[in-house]
Structure formats: C-alpha cells, structure tokens
Nucleic acid binder design. Structure first.
Lengths: 338, 338
DNA sequence: TTGTACGCGTTATCAT
DNA sequence: ATGATAACGCGTACAA
C-alpha cells in the first residue's frame, strides 16, 4: 500500500502474496479457487478495508454499477414508490439508483434513450409504464446488451424480464364487492390510452359485471387520463345523467378523489348518495373524508423484485415471482345504494 | 477506427493526425490550443460521431458524471419536484441523476454516506433538507472533495454552496394577508424539530403578528411534523379551544389539508367558519375543496439552480442566485372572519 | 488452481 | 502549442 489513498487490488495481491487475478476472482466469486486461497485473500481484504473501485470495474466491464429507472411522466407518488422499491432491492449491494425521465411524444425519443444508455451504461434498467410496453425501447436494451425488467400490467415478456400485478383480478374483485353491496348501476372512469393498465382494469370490471348478469351501459363508461381533473370531468358527466350511477369505480385514486370532490361540490353525500372505489392505495386515499375504498397496488414490491431480477443472473431472475397480488382495501367510501 | 464499435479518442487522434492529448484538450476546452488545431479536431469528432466514454473519464478523473440527490425521508411531491429541478439543471449535459436516501437516525448514518460517496464518486451532491443542515455531512463532502450544494432555509454557507428561499418573508406576507382580512386570532401549526424551515416560517409568522401589534397566544401554536395526521391532531386541539382561532396557518400543505378535513368533519364550513393557509403549493392544494390558499415554494427552481451550481466552476456558481422567491397564492380557503 | 501481460478509454506529467 | 508515455484500477486471454 504505497503512501496513503485507498488500497487497490494490487495492494491486496501484494499483501496476500497472490496475483491480481486471484484477488479479482475472489471479488467476483469465481468458483475455481481453493478455499484456502479464498480465505486468505478475504482476510487481507477485510484487514486492509479494500473496496473495489467501481469506476475501474465499469471501464473494464463496460457497464456501470447503476440501476436506472426509465419513465415518462408518472405521478409523484408512483415514482417515489418505485424508487423506494428499487432502493430496497439494491440495498446492501454496491449498486446505485439513477432516475431518467423521457418524453415519448418527442421525435427523438428513442435516440435520447439510446444516448442515455450509451453514456451512463447502466447495469440494468427498470422500465416503468407506459414505456414498459414500448417494444422499440426493449429492442434497444437487447441490442445494447443492457439488462432490463418491465413493470407491466400484462405478461408481455418472459419471467426474467417482467414484474406485474393482477390488476384484472383485483378490479373484478372490487367490482364484485360493489355488486355484492347491491349496486347495479356502476360508473366506470377509465384510464388513458397508450397504457395497458387501464385496459386490464376495464376488462376486470366487465368480467365482474358479466359474471353477475349485469349489462354494461355505455353511458356509464367515461374516459379519463389518471389525473384529478379528468376525474372531475367524468364525474360531472356521470351525475348529470338522467339515471345516474349509484357507485363509481375509477381506474386510479386521483380520479376517484376528483370524482369525490365533484359529487360533494354538487351537494351529494359520500357514501350515502354515491359510493366510490379507486385504485392504487396512495396515501391520498386515506387522507380524504370519507377515506377511499380502493385497490392496493403492490408497486413497491414490484419495483423491489424488478431490481433484484436485474442484479441476479437471468436464470435466477426467471425463478423469482413476476406477478405480485393487488387486493381490495375496504375503507369508508362504499355502502349499499339507497 | 479499427473494426466496429464506437470510435475512441485514439481514432479521432489518428484521423486528425494529432496526439490523444490534443484531442483530450479539445474535449476539455483547454485554452492553450491553436484555433486551427481545435477546428480540425472538432471537425473529425463531428465526422466520426465521437462521444467521450464517461467510465474512462470517471476512472481518470476519479469522479463520476453523476449528480446525486441525498435526502432523508421527505415527502413524495417534494422529492419529485427536486428531481425535476435537478434534471432541468443538467439537461443537455452529460450528467445523470442519482437518488440516495439515508436514515439519519441510525448509528452508522455518516458511514453510510461516506461509503456511498466513495463508491459512486458523484461529481456533486445536492443536499436536501434536513440533511442540508448537517455539518458533519458537509464536512464529509469537503474532506472527500465532492462538490455540494445545500438546499436550505437559512444562509448557512457561502453563495456557491447554497440555494434557499425567503420562507420567512413569504410567511410574514401570508400572515399579514390574514391580518389584513380581519383575522386577529390565528392558529399556527408548526413543522418538525430538526428542520430549519419550520423555525423560519414561525419567525415570519411572529414578525407579522408583532408588526400588527397582535399578541402571540401560546395556546394557538400547536406542534406538527409535516404530516397529514399531525395537521389533524393540531386542528382538533385548536378548534376544541374555548376561544378558537378564526384562521389557521399551517407550515405545509399536508398539515393544512389535515386541518381542513378535521374542521369539516366536525361540522365547520371552510372558509366561512375558519380560514386556512398552507405552505408549499403542492398539486394537492388545488385538488381540495375549497382550494387551498398557500405559499408557493420555488422548489423546482431551487433544485435546478443547485444542479447548475454543481456543474459550474466555483466562481461561476457564486455568481448565480442563491435565494429564490416564495410568494403567496390566493385561492379559496380564506375570507374575513364572521 | 494460479500468474503474466495486456486491454478498457481517458487524463496527467513532463518534456519539446 | 503539442506529443510520448505513464498512470487510473480492474478484468481477461492465455500461459503455466
């Protein structure tokens, strides 16, 4: 260990009387090493407090010890939950989390992503919806040899490259819950196009209605864009109907709360006059009055699993779960219709 | 340019008939270069589509092209706004954004930060409150030669290392606004200890009250912790008073909305029965009914400026603004008292 | 099982 | 103003 500075692999090699390569093998857990040598080197590593230099490894390996979350315009709570999950997944490892948003509506979207991957060379990327269903980006990852995992609502890749949740089942359950309470006219506020999750949620809704022998009144299905404002607009349409619904299922919490506010603003009581169910279980949903009955989306668990899949070898990743359960959280915004 | 792969500095040097070092000088905008050579090399760079390898530069320079946001448990909207600001600040550069939370209540907090800095070697770090007022962490940055900028509510560093907002002035203005409307009994819901911002906000509140010749009733000052729940608790205390306030200033929006919900839950009308003012101007504040009058905190601008200071040389950073203005946003939650 | 020599792509030193 | 050569710290053929 010449002078000060942090010890390098050379210092370890010298102190342990072995070659660099042997130390390198220990670091990378190579199987072809005698236990004796391994133990000796590990002792020296601990003794010297040696920590491999990530920048040097990045140069040699042509990939950085970074997991990147690539997203386009998600809401704050979603994004932070994903970040939390990824950080949990890489906890204890040497990886760091990088965050990079892109606007997939610009002309050079794909080039921007490529430039990012070429520059930072992340070890792996977590693709957040709706980018996760963009095949061009996935192809890009494959082409560049960048590991990736998609957070998706449908199974559009093999087990090693996807984490998902059973949105459809969960919404079916939530809708069945409303039906069980006695609701037959149930409004649906949909999510934005270009995302797969709203399609799945709508499918679950339809399945529950059909299973109960209920018809799907097109007038009760309103478009939405996952924003508070779109929930307001949709709810306004819904309650202005001649024969308005007694309950509303909104494809996310923000729209559900927009709907709540709108109903109350026009003099209705919740849940007495109208029941409302959301999706996500954001902190918001327990911060409104009445608190919102909603479907808990296991987003932190999904992100954690995604990160773990990225830092594990492919075969191990394929063995990890890819579908995490969503489930209904009963709170105060649902009662039987009057 | 032997074979395929991306062109390297060697390819450029060969094609331009100069040495590697000369190309390096061009990349790093070294002043001691003849214009002719510079132009020649730049032409070749453009021609070949050469992009410097960040991992190699990181190894040589001993610092990665990464800006890290270091934080401890802030709320989602705040965190996302900071990230947006930093990303705006590094837009067009080669830098990436890394996010790393720490729990400053654990024993090995400082070691964890040190390990992170040693491992990832970020070019610079943005210190978010409350970590930004932790001198041990700042010392650590100095010791390791890591550039840093603190996001703070007080000027606890020189211009090159801080971005701030005039919380105190803004709260004084907001409180004066309530007083102007005719309120004299104004409740204050404070923020958590260990943060500097609540102290500044309280100081602004007191200054406005004093300036108006109003006394500060200790019974009207309730503790809070920037959470929705703490706003609920504080408001419950406040409205249970024999002589309750006619207005409440909460040190952030979440608590303000907790207070709103609480007041409405106990049958009060807002703003008719009680006026409420928050701080932050989160999206939440315009998504409640009535919409919340609040102080807009220029968090995105602060973060953008912080990132710009990090990637500029110190002398240029010192010339950039360090104080960004907060200002009152009048919405629907304030009217004169009855 | 272990070691030698070289490559990764850039910057720094010290000449000229 | 420019260039030859050595770092920077680790991984990998290939040899032993």
């Amino acid at each position: 260990m010449k002078g000060e500075g942090k010890p390098t692999i050379n210092d370890v090699a010298a102190a342990a009387n072995v070659s660099k390569k042997t130390v390198s093998r220990v670091i990378n857990k190579s199987p072809l090493l005698s236990d004796k040598t391994r133990a000796k080197v590990e002792a020296v590593i601990k003794d010297l407090g040696f920590v491999p230099n990530l920048q040097a490894r990045a140069l040699a390996l042509r990939r950085n010890f970074i997991i990147a979350a690539i997203h386009d315009n998600p809401n704050a709570q979603f994004l932070v939950n994903v970040q939390q999950g990824i950080l949990e997944g890489i906890e204890g490892s040497e990886f760091g989390l990088m965050v990079q948003p892109f606007d997939r509506n610009t002309e050079d979207f794909e080039q921007k992503v490529r430039a990012f991957l070429e520059r930072q060379r992340p070890y792996g990327v977590v693709l957040l919806p709706p980018i996760s269903s963009d095949e061009a980006i996935v192809d890009l990852c494959r082409e560049m040899g960048t590991r990736y995992v998609r957070m998706s609502s449908i199974k559009n890749d093999d087990e090693a490259h996807i984490v998902s949740s059973n949105d459809r089942d969960a919404v079916r359950e939530a809708t069945a819950y409303l039906i069980e309470k006695g609701h037959t006219r149930i409004g649906l506020i949909e999510g934005p196009e270009g995302f797969t999750s709203p399609q799945e949620r709508r499918a679950g809704f339809e399945e529950a209605m059909t299973a109960a022998g209920l018809s799907l009144d097109p007038a009760l299905v309103r478009p939405g864009s996952y924003t508070f404002e779109s929930g307001v607009t949709a709810a306004q349409d819904l309650i202005a109907l001649d024969h308005p619904p007694t309950a509303i299922f909104a494809c996310n919490d923000e729209m559900a709360i927009g709907a709540m506010i709108t109903c109350r603003r026009s003099g209705m009581l919740i849940p007495e006059d109208i029941s409302i169910v959301g999706f996500d279980d954001t902190p918001l949903s327990s911060h409104v009055w009445p608190s919102l009955t909603t479907v808990r989306w296991p987003i932190v668990e999904m992100a954690r699993t995604a990160a773990q899949k990225l830092i594990e070898p492919d075969d191990a990743a394929a063995q990890m779960p890819w579908m995490l359960p969503s489930n209904l959280v009963e709170r105060g915004s649902v009662v039987p219709p009057k």
